[in-house]
Design a protein around this nucleic acid. Structure first.
Lengths: 207, 207
DNA sequence: GTCTATACCTCGATAGAC
DNA sequence: GTCTATCGAGGTATAGAC
């Protein structure tokens, strides 16, 4: 309460705006989002948005960058860990699937916005990501050479892992209809995926 | 030329508009698309868009529905075919991957718009899709019972297949960076996927 | 059927009082 | 810091001449 003079509740408002912006941008995208809707969601005046964040673009950038930081580091961290290959794959699926089920709309948001403006990636720190690929590549090559796993490229393995984890979240509406898993049924299906995807990958990698 | 009186080149213009609309909507989405941009792309006047299609919404609906028809039927057709399970899976991956590489932006467009308004699916004929699921389900159960493939639910199998086929198209910008496959390298990677995905799935299904 | 001009509106952004 | 009022750009849609 002492330093309430230096920061007189400013943070509370800025945070409310930011979280409201996340909600709206994640569902509507940049082009579909309306500043008025974000203001309503935050329960404050529209002019406040411009007071705290200068423009719609700046606000979006903040939300997008925060989204990237929620998605990439956890994945990279797992892939670059010192765990043996099998455990690494298992942990990757577990943490990633659980992490994303907490922000189901985040992957779709990032992918959609990235397709519309790939330059967004230029501002992202690729330096942290670079080491993970060679590491898993050599780890995989070793396991293949020892005959512990079938031959597969690191690219295909990573691509398959991420695809099977994320796509069911993105395509929820379609899958829900096609697979006839309405309402809660689909959430149960997703919950089971940690196990089923792990099994699927492990079986695929048997020599 | 005789019936050029009843349809005096009307089709040519309408088609040009429609294809231009596909291009723009597929890349920018509904909210991000501009009627002016569609008109420019078609090389005609903006007012013509409203003459042939009443509104932006109507034009979008036409494009969206056409998109769905390019995506769903080919998939369902393969899944509902009379081929034995192994061949069916192989054909599914082949045709689907090849089909979509001809319209790389289509899956992302459909998924993004569907997440923003799931009601789009209500207007789609689900009747044609319904029979495919039970068919593959029984086919799979039979193969499992005979010990020819490992136990897996039809939902997980279909979900994994489609995920591994489509997600690399959606997430192209991210994967291109993460996997360090710039430019043409990524297209080569995608071209190889028909084979690598088929192998991966077949290996996963070994008893 | 095709074009120009324009009406009408929504939205992002700012000015200015408090 | 917060609100109200409003400006101005840019968007969809239409009116009307040709």
């Amino acid at each position: 309460m002492v330093d309430s003079q230096t920061k007189p509740r400013t943070e509370a408002v800025e945070e409310r705006i930011f979280h409201a912006a996340e909600t709206v941008f994640h569902t509507k995208g940049f082009a579909g989002a309306r500043m008025q809707e974000i203001a309503d969601e935050a329960g404050i005046n529209k002019a406040m948005l411009h007071y705290y964040f200068r423009s719609k673009g700046k606000l979006f950038e903040a939300v997008f960058e925060a989204g990237i930081k929620k998605v990439l580091p956890p994945a990279v961290e797992q892939l670059a860990s010192d765990h043996p290959l099998g455990l690494k794959i298992r942990r990757f699926i577990e943490t990633y699937l659980e992490n994303m089920s907490r922000n189901p709309k985040l992957p779709g948001f990032i992918i959609a916005e990235l397709n519309r403006n790939p330059d967004h990636l230029r501002n992202i720190a690729m330096a942290e990501i670079a080491p993970a690929l060679p590491k898993i590549r050599s780890q995989l090559a070793e396991a293949v050479a020892e005959g512990r796993v079938r031959a597969i490229s690191a690219e295909d393995l990573i691509c398959n892992l991420i695809s099977m984890c994320l796509f069911p979240l993105l395509a929820r509406p379609v899958f829900q209809s096609i697979l006839q898993l309405e309402g809660g049924k689909y959430d149960e299906f997703l919950a089971r995926r940690t196990e089923t995807v792990t099994d699927f990958v492990f079986n695929a990698l048997r020599p």
